[in-house]
Each structure stands twice: as structure tokens, then as C-alpha cells.
Simulated assay, not measured.
Amino acid sequence: MSIKTKRIESIDILRGLVMIIMALDHTRDYFHYSAFLGDPTNMETTTPFLFFTRFITNFCAPVFVFLAGTSAFLYGTNKSKPELSKFLLTRGLWLIILEITLNNLIWTFDLTHEIIIFQVIWAIGFSMVCLSFLIYLPKKAILSIGIILVAGHNLLDGIVFEGTSFKSVIWYLLHQQQRLPLYPFKLAVFHYPVIPWIGLMVLGYCFGTFYTKKFEVSIRKKWLLILGVSSIALFFILRGINVYGNLLPWSVQKNTTFTILSFFNVTKYPPSLAYLLITMGPSLLFLYAIENYKNRATNFLLVFGRVPLYFYFVHVFVIHAFAIIGILVFGGNWHDLIGKGSGWSSNLVNYGYSLFIVYIVWMSIVILLYPSCKKYMIYKANNKDKWWLSYL
């Protein structure tokens, strides 16, 4: 079946790649031993392979958020500012609703919603709401706000709140990762404080200028190369100085390998400047390299990159369901894999599989979901007249 689309393939290819990598992280979350009660970046307990498995998935959320801003800009090229603002506001609010209801349900499988987790869908939705107002500003002002939020938010790292006061909860939503009992939920988990994510989406919105029809490809590639290399260089400079740009400094470890791991152990919650530099820099270089490149691999990635929200929700549900099937097959208690207000069961300390099994399950799930993603991609592309598809 033919596909009618004017989408920019290199952007969708990058998005598809990070969506697939994201599935690896979520597979590890539900299948790797100690995943529920351990930390793959803990220098005392991790291994180089485990750390690498976690590190490469760091690219997912930043690229997802950044390209959401880029897509917003491109969507607005043939819309008025009020039309674009209305779309961003309503879609942002819709994503927040999906986070609180559907996303929490498929992550926890708890019908009582005792726990609420603010994750990447929440961050994208809230950032879109903010962007819906910011687009009325001059482009230079929008760019300046994005740079200030991304480069300067680590100045706020020393501000720490405690408790469940209104002021504290607002700060947890904005800049401090936190877990706490919060009515009407037994547990609220603030994984994605939004200040840096707003800045990143704003920068992605400005980045969309490079992909307008009148922008020369040669100049775009030049800027992709400059920005990509500069971001990586700045990361090494900041981490080398070891004073600013990350919540925790790196330190000398038990051997050279682990010292290197410590150097690359950047903070995701909230995403530090160092974290965003080392993830967005290579991503921009990927866009530089993939321009006008097309083969079977890129066609495969395109499918996932054009249906990101569908793939996100479906793959989490499938991974969680497979994990429950696995624990039943091997004689465990499936209730342990239901997230409740008290958190995950302490019985999971002995649960899990090797990284080899994690990778096998990951690849199997990606292949399993490919046909439905492709069908949905074709349906969306050939039904542009259905306005509601733009919200999915």
C-alpha cells in the first residue's frame, strides 16, 4: 500500500531508533534481576555491560522531547500562531491525562491507581502547554529561554525541599526528583521535573527552522555538524572541570574502567546539562550522517519513528504482560509485579533474568510489534483528514 506523507525522513529515523532503544531500557526494567530494587548506575554494584545498557538508553527521552518541539514547529509552518497554540495546549493537556490514567495503569497494572508516576509523557505534555504560550514571543527570545533553562537549571540543584507542602510539591514537579505519599495516591513519584525538559522542547522548536523547505541542505548539515561536535566537546570540558553541569561530580573509582563509567554517569532526574550535551550531541551528528540515507534498516526505523505514542504505550503493556507470564511460568507470584502505593514488592529482590535474556526478549518484542506499527503508520499517513489522529 502506498503512503502519502511529507514527513522528514531523517527526523523519523532518529526518533525510531531511540524508540527501539527505549524498549531495551523498559525490558530491563521488568526482566533484569535486581532491576526493581537496584540501580544500574551504582558504581558499587553495576558491571560495565549493565552500565552500558542503561547509558545508551539515556538518548531516548531527550531526543523524544527535543523532536517533539521540532515537530511542533514543522506542524505550525502552515498554521497560524493561534491555531498552533491551540493544538499544543490541547495536545499537551491530553498527554498529561494519558500519563495519569493510561500510562500509570500499564506500568503498574494497578486498577486502584494507588501510585502515580510522573514520567516522560507528563514532561512532554507539560512542556507543550508551556510552548503553546511561548510561541508568541520573538524567535530570539524563545531561543534565549531554551538556552537559559537547559544551561542554567543546574544552578538550582542546591535548592532542596522536603515534605508534602504545596510549595514542596510544586518544586518536585519543577526541579527535584522525589517520592512521597500524596493524597489521593498512596505514593507519588516525580521522575521528570519539568524545567530542563521545557527548555529542551523549546530548543527543539527553534531547531525546526533548519528543516523548513527554503533552508539549504548544505547549510543545515553544516550546522548539525557544528552543534553536534560542540555539544560533545562542551560535555568533556564541563565533566573535566567537574564543578558545574551535573548534580553529582565524577570521582576516581576502583579501576580505570569504573572511573570512566563514573565520568559518564550523568544525572537524568532532572536531566543535567552534561546529560543533555552527551545525548543530544551524538543525536545531531546522527541526523547529519543520515541525511538522504535510505536502505532497509532506515525503512525499519521509520515505522517506529512515525507512530511513537502508539509504540510507547503498546510496548510497555506487552513488556509488563510478558514479565507476568514469565513469573507465572517459573513459579513466582504475579502479584509481585503489580505496582502498589507501597512500591514494588520486596520479593522482587530475588526476581529476574540475565542481560542476555533481557536482550533476547527486547529484540523479540520489537519484531513482534513491527507489523501493527507499520499498519498504523500507513493508516495515519493516508488519513490526514482525521484531525484526532494528530493527538495519537
Rank of each mutant, 00 (worst) to 15 (best):
K4N: 11
T5S: 13
R7M: 00
I11V: 08
D12F: 01
D12R: 08
I13Y: 09
A23R: 03
D39N: 15
D39K: 12
P40G: 03
T41W: 11
T46Q: 10
P48H: 07
F55R: 13
N58A: 12
V63N: 01
L67C: 06
T77R: 13
T77M: 12
N78I: 05
E83K: 08
T90H: 08
G92S: 06
G92Q: 03
L95Q: 09
L98S: 12
T101F: 08
T101G: 09
F109D: 01
I117V: 14
Q119C: 05
V120K: 05
I121T: 14
W122K: 10
M128P: 00
M128V: 09
C130K: 05
L134I: 14
L137W: 00
S144V: 10
L149D: 00
G152P: 08
L155N: 12
I159R: 11
F166M: 14
Y172Q: 09
L174S: 03
L174M: 12
Q176M: 07
L182S: 02
L182Y: 04
F185H: 14
V189H: 07
Y192N: 12
I195L: 15
I198W: 00
L200A: 07
M201G: 00
W223M: 11
L224K: 04
L225E: 05
L227N: 08
G228M: 07
F235W: 02
L238R: 00
R239V: 02
N255D: 15
T257G: 14
T257I: 15
T257F: 04
T257L: 14
T259I: 08
T259M: 06
F263V: 11
S272H: 05
S272I: 07
L273T: 15
Y275K: 13
L284E: 01
I290W: 02
E291M: 00
N292Y: 00
F300W: 11
L302Q: 09
G305V: 05
F313G: 13
H315D: 06
F317N: 05
V318N: 07
H320E: 13
I327W: 02
G331I: 01
N333H: 03
L337H: 02
K340V: 06
S345Y: 00
S345T: 06
G352Y: 06
G352D: 01
S354L: 08
Y359K: 11
V361E: 01
W388K: 13
